[in-house]
């Protein structure tokens, strides 16, 4: 063999080996692309979907849930009700830290079972301090414990939400009734919102959520509790698939102490208005200027 052909042969062999190694290295990616249909890939942003497109998307999600998870569900698209502005207040004097709210959220919102995920975390606070530095979420004893009080924290649905501002693709926004939502089919999973949120209210789907078919709550919303895809961010949405139909959020319904007061801020006769008018309420980290819609008060 001449020098030139020998070199060419070696180079050709090298290139072939390289290509094979590359194909082999990329092989696991097949599992990802198998799950992704062209329709899903090309789906437009929620707010750009025509009524017909949206209808198709909702039905497709239902079919996918049946095929992939074996559960019959209905996915609705509940829109904000004109004249309604949602607000939430929580009475810290009566909350006893039982975490029924977090549990109700877990079931209502089809959270990942393996991580016991919930949009609500309850902080056991030290009497005499509002500083979370002295708080704990992983307490494991009878409640209420002496010298402690309890502060459940979930998304505060800020009017000036840092998470909405930082999103590079407008996958999260504030709806007309004040609820900050995410289009799970539009989120790119950069987690900038998670870094920006001052309240640790956002969660990322580090893997495909695990949940048994019979445990799936079939009453679902596109922007709320449908089972989220892997690789996207999620958060509390004030159970909009319930509250926009006149029901209470699951956490408020589950609370055994009556600490949670939810309602329409524009309705002068609502309990939430009574609390705001008659109690000395405060919001978390007011100095950050996020203007939360979630208020706390002591009786």
């Amino acid at each position: 063999m001449t020098e030139v052909t020998r070199r060419a042969t070696v180079a050709g062999l090298g290139a072939t080996l390289g290509a094979v190694a590359f194909a082999k290295a990329m092989e696991p990616l097949r599992h990802f692309t198998e799950d992704l249909s062209l329709d899903q890939f090309l789906q437009r942003h929620y707010r750009e979907l025509s009524p017909e497109d949206l209808e198709r998307v909702l039905r497709r999600i239902e079919e996918d849930t049946l095929r992939e998870r074996g559960a019959h569900v209905s996915v609705a698209d509940d829109r904000p009700i004109p004249g309604v502005q949602f607000g939430y207040a929580l009475n810290l004097s009566v909350c006893n830290g039982c975490r029924k709210c977090a549990e109700a959220c877990h079931h209502e919102n089809n959270h990942d079972r393996s991580t016991n995920q919930s949009y609500i975390r309850v902080f056991e606070m030290e009497q005499g301090s509002l500083d979370f530095e002295h708080a704990a979420t992983h307490y494991d004893h009878a409640v209420p414990a002496p010298g402690k009080y309890y502060m459940p924290v979930q998304c505060l649905q800020c009017d000036d939400a840092p998470c909405v501002a930082v999103c590079p693709v407008e996958a999260t926004w504030k709806e007309e009734d004040g609820i900050v939502v995410i289009d799970y089919d539009w989120c790119i999973g950069c987690r900038y919102c998670e870094a920006a949120c001052p309240y640790h209210a956002r969660r990322f789907n580090w893997s495909e959520p695990e949940i048994e078919a019979e445990e799936i709550n079939p009453d679902q919303g596109y922007l709320s509790n449908r089972v989220r895809p892997k690789g996207v961010v999620e958060k509390c949405h004030f159970c909009l698939h319930r509250t926009r139909r006149g029901r209470l959020p699951a956490c408020a319904e589950a609370c055994p102490t009556g600490a949670r007061v939810f309602g329409n801020l524009l309705d002068p006769d609502s309990p939430i208005r009574w609390v705001l008018d008659n109690k000395r309420v405060f919001v978390l980290k007011e100095e950050l200027g996020t203007r939360p819609r979630f208020f706390y008060f002591f009786d």
């Binding site: 501002a165 930082v166 999103c167 590079p168 693709v169 999973g189 990322f204 895809p229 690789g231």
Partner: peptide, 30 residues
């Protein structure tokens, strides 16, 4: 490094102005 940090790199096109929704100038990431 940005792409491998993304949960959904298949949706990178959501960032292309015109095709997707480019949240400029609000988002520093844009």
């Amino acid at each position: 490094f940005v792409i491998v940090d993304m949960g959904r790199p298949d949706r990178l096109w959501h960032m292309i102005p015109g095709l997707g929704r480019f949240h400029w100038p609000m988002s520093m990431l844009t």
